[in-house]
Amino acid sequence: MTVVTPANPAPPVSARRLRFRPGIRPGVYLAALVLFLLVLATVAPHLFTGQDPLAVDSAQTLRPPSAEHLLGTDENGRDVFSRIVFGTRTSLLLGFGAIAIALAGGGLLGVAAGLGNRFVENLIMRFSDIGLAFPELLLALVVITVAGSGTSNALIAIGVANIPNYARVVRAQTLLIRRSSYVEAAHALGLSVPRVVLRHVLPNAVKPVLILATIGVGSALVAGSALSFLGLGTPPPEPEWGSMLSTARDFISRAWWYGLFPGVAITLTVISVTVVGRALRLRSEGRTW
């Protein structure tokens, strides 16, 4: 065989990889590490602290950070560090759970709107227009007024409030891919419509939405802890970052550590989730990290 029409010589694969993935910035590693530790704290909080987050000690109230109590104690003498560690589970559950609901509902509606006929699309989009009119916190307050406070009600309320937004994004993404040349090429090959949708449209639509959802977890988590801060989410004495801050508000002048560290936990979590989400997005767009 004589190769007489040589193809354009492409750079070696390794060089091309380098151009598209020039290595991850250290900040992204750090954020991923923080996320890993948070997940670990959710599964096995005992690995991080030997103290009981509910153990009351009236002799040790509002003590500043010390060797015994790393981040000090609260008004009931409970260990703040241990309460933060044990509170991870509730806080992460709120963030991830709410987004899972939003993704499931929004994904289903968005795909239906993106693939369905004009009537279905209009119906779904008009409903999501109405839904968008209600900020998540407000909708959550309505749900709580009717159904009462608590972690699961807060989670459901925030999740439902986010459905319209995700429905829109998923629909836009689905439409974009549905009109792309590679989907047209698949049709031209004679692939059946369900196959084209399952093989090309959905997988390509899901990825950017999942990445977006990563970043959304952060804001859902903040909304969840805000409800607890207002006394409408996780009830005391169970440890939760927002409700800790709610109590800490009354002791601002006397115990700075109490009002500081639970907030650090929230902010650090949101930053990590956002950094990892943005890095994933940049990579999926073929840009540098």
Partner: peptide, 24 residues
């Protein structure tokens, strides 16, 4: 739709935008 798909095999297409033409 089945006959349409069968007929599609006889007529294929090549596009201008070489990147958009493939599932990434």
């Amino acid at each position: 739709s089945a006959a349409r798909r069968a007929l599609r095999r006889d007529i294929q297409v090549v596009y201008q935008d070489t990147l958009a033409a493939f599932d990434p």
